[in-house]
Design a protein around this nucleic acid. Structure first.
Lengths: 150, 150
DNA sequence: CCGATTTCAGTTAAACTGAGATAA
DNA sequence: CTTATCTCAGTTGAACTGAAATCG
């Protein structure tokens, strides 16, 4: 057990998180904000609650993230037509532009991170990481998808 | 860019961190405390400052971790003979026993995490993760090893 | 005086739980 | 009445910076 795989995983993610944080900070974005813009670009009109579910955080946490983005003018929210309580979020023009800049920076960092691996190896690494996550999920499956055990 | 590798990395580490946190919590340990016990078992007698360097945190953060471990009776510290200010930390009998129990739980979690991979693939994954970390380091190299640019 | 170690105090980022108001 | 959404308020864990005391 010279250097456990969990240790390598944590160190690698720490390094990525730091690099992304520094790059996004220059754009006035936090990592959670970037992640939320990313989800919202692919699924416009989601509610805060739905965004929270897809990002694996609580509704309160997502509310804080969304409020920050709204205050910065990157996201706008409108009441759902015919369902007054729900607020649908979507990117503003500024939000799309900022996300584009952030994407480019993050893509450059990720490219540097896997620069020693060829495309097939990069795919393999991604697949293995996905398998690791899934292997660990069962124990907390009831927390993230409570609907399966009603 | 369907599912970026950085996303997979973060999700996998999140899952591992949650699983470890839950398992260690039952033993009254936090993840940083476990990591410190681990380092200390392999290098007894280290000072807080040296432990901080090896764990990539500030001396203040390590002080908090060590004080927690000392208060729980898992670590004891004695003044360095002939160097009054330095306190050398080492595991107590209780600390060694607790670390053993924690190790077994963590090993079980890591084994489950990579359960779909054969030993060669596990080694490959570990190597790639190490490469990812190193590829990201140069930009913050001056922070973790300031001695290289005096 | 300088450098390293320890430690007190305050702060931050990012999550959390609790609780309340509202709408379907 | 129940359930889901949104949001205010407080808390937590784990990091950080600043600053002070001590030792060699």
């Amino acid at each position: 057990m010279a250097s456990p795989i969990g240790y390598e995983l944590k160190r690698a993610q720490d390094a990525l998180s730091r690099a992304m944080g520094a790059a996004l900070d220059e754009l006035g974005l936090s990592v959670p904000q970037y992640a939320t813009l990313w989800v919202l670009a692919e699924a416009p009109g989601l509610s805060s609650a739905e965004l929270a579910r897809r990002s694996f955080v609580t509704a309160q946490t997502m509310n804080e993230i969304i409020c920050g983005l709204e205050g910065a003018g990157l996201v706008a929210r409108r009441p759902h037509p015919g369902h007054g309580r729900i607020k649908q979020a979507h990117l503003t023009a500024a939000g799309r532009s900022r996300l584009g800049a952030a994407r480019r920076r993050v893509a450059a960092i990720e490219a540097r991170m896997v620069s020693g691996l060829n495309p097939a190896q990069q795919r393999q690494l991604s697949v293995w990481l996905g398998a690791c996550r899934i292997n660990l999920q069962p124990l907390e499956l009831s927390r993230t998808t409570p609907r399966l055990t009603p």
